[in-house]
Every structure is written in structure tokens, then in C-alpha cells.
Nucleic acid binder design. Structure first.
Lengths: 109, 109
DNA sequence: AAAGTATTTGGCTATAATACCAAATAGTAG
DNA sequence: CTACTATTTGGTATTATAGCCAAATACTTT
């Protein structure tokens, strides 16, 4: 795989995670598979919106789905994603320390 | 911190990484700090574009910068980011296996 | 077959991200 | 102070993303 291409793929996977609702779903899925209806309950948006978020995650290779009767169940395909989220915690934590020392806040966009 | 708010912050940090050029810069910075001019050389876009990408990374708390003479040096603030990238490799790897078994490709957007 | 439920898809609008150019800023050297 | 270099900022056109509604699909139950 070309280097250039690899960065594009990786960015695509990461971008798929880069949304509060999708993160919330990933978190929820960390303890096992869930149906779309349950995920909707968790994130609280319109069903169609939730479905589109799930499509993004699936296209990125982060989740897989299976149908059972009327319901569709999604689950994480690559568990290491979760370890990553801990790292993000560390970024936020570093930032909290830094804010106390009067540095640049994370939200200063 | 509110749960809602936390997911927003995390998504912001992740979104900051979700771009091929920014990933490339993070990778380059894994072995130590670099000046903007060097980073531009690596990603190959316009200097102003590179500068704006670096601003995104800085605002997200992923890098810090220091000025030395005319040049500005950037470095990673939270090294665990790198471990995460290995996980993304795993996503791609899973996907490669899956493609051989005729599943959904990662790039099918 | 008809009605009902869970999910996906299409279409639209609003908002945000990206990339480039030109101009501004900050520091250095003559 | 002037010219020069590295970097940032402002402006703008283009493209991508998000969320909502309505309609379509897929299954189940009656």
C-alpha cells in the first residue's frame, strides 16, 4: 500500500470516530452488541440520523452488523479502539493540568 | 464534567487527527520536534495550509509549539497518540482479511 | 394479504472544513 | 531603518458533514 493511500485510509477510520454520537455508540458497544433501537435510546437523535452514523462506522470497518428478525445488531469489530479512548482521556487530563498553569485551553477554537 | 460535554471534547480531539496531512505530521513528530518548514516539506501543501493544520492540532491539545528565532518548533504533547495509530493499523488489517473473504471494503462510501 | 414495527435510504438545508492566495506579523541581518 | 525569511491570519470558493422529514424496505403477526 502506498504511503499516501495509507494515511487516507487511516484518516477515514479516525474521522468515523470523530463525532460525539458515534463515540457514545462505540462506548456503549464496548460491553457487547446492541440493536439500533437501543443505540438510538442512548444517543437520543432521530432514528435515521443514528442509522447514518452507524453506516459511517460500518464503512470505516469499526463495527459489523447482523440482522435478527426485525432488529439489526451492531458490535465492535476491533476492540483496541477502546484503549485509544483512554489515550484521549489523557489528552484531556494533560489539558486540565495545563489550564491550571494558564496554558491554552482545548476548546479555544 | 458532564458526560455530554466529555464526548464533545473527545470528538474534538479525535477530529483534529482525522486528516491525512495531520496524521502524517503526527507520525513525523513521533521522533521529536520539527519546525514548520520541515513539516511543510513532509506534507507538501501550501505553507499557510500547514500552519492551519498545526493550529488545529494545537487547539486540540495534541501538540505544543515554541519559537526559536524565525522558526517555530512543534512537538507531540501526549505520546500515547502513537499507540492509537497502531490500533488503526489493526482496523485496516482486519479489513484486509475481510476483503479477502468478500466482505464490505473500508472505502465503500 | 394487511397492518405494524425496525431500519435504511433519498432529498434537502444548514453548517463546518479545506485549500489556496494575498497580506500581515515577528524576528534577523545588513 | 530596510530587506529578508518563517510563520500566521484573513478572505473566499469549493466540498463535505449533520440532521431532519418523508418514503422505501424488510420482517412479523394477524
Amino acid at each position: 500500500m502506498l504511503d499516501e493511500e495509507m494515511y487516507n485510509y487511516k484518516a477515514q477510520v479516525i474521522k468515523a470516530m470523530a463525532h460525539p454520537s458515534r463515540l457514545k455508540m462505540i462506548d456503549a458497544l464496548s460491553s457487547g452488541e446492541l440493536c439500533v433501537c437501543k443505540l438510538q435510546e442512548i444517543v437520543g437523535s432521530d432514528m435515521s440520523t443514528v442509522s447514518k452514523h452507524l453506516l459511517v462506522l460500518r464503512n470505516a470497518g469499526i463495527v459489523t452488523s447482523r440482522k435478527e428478525g426485525l432488529q439489526v445488531y451492531y458490535k465492535l469489530r476491533v476492540p483496541c479502539i477502546l484503549g485509544f479512548l483512554n489515550c484521549i482521556d489523557e489528552v484531556l487530563h494533560e489539558d486540565a493540568k495545563c489550564r491550571m498553569a494558564v496554558c491554552k485551553p482545548v476548546a479555544s477554537r
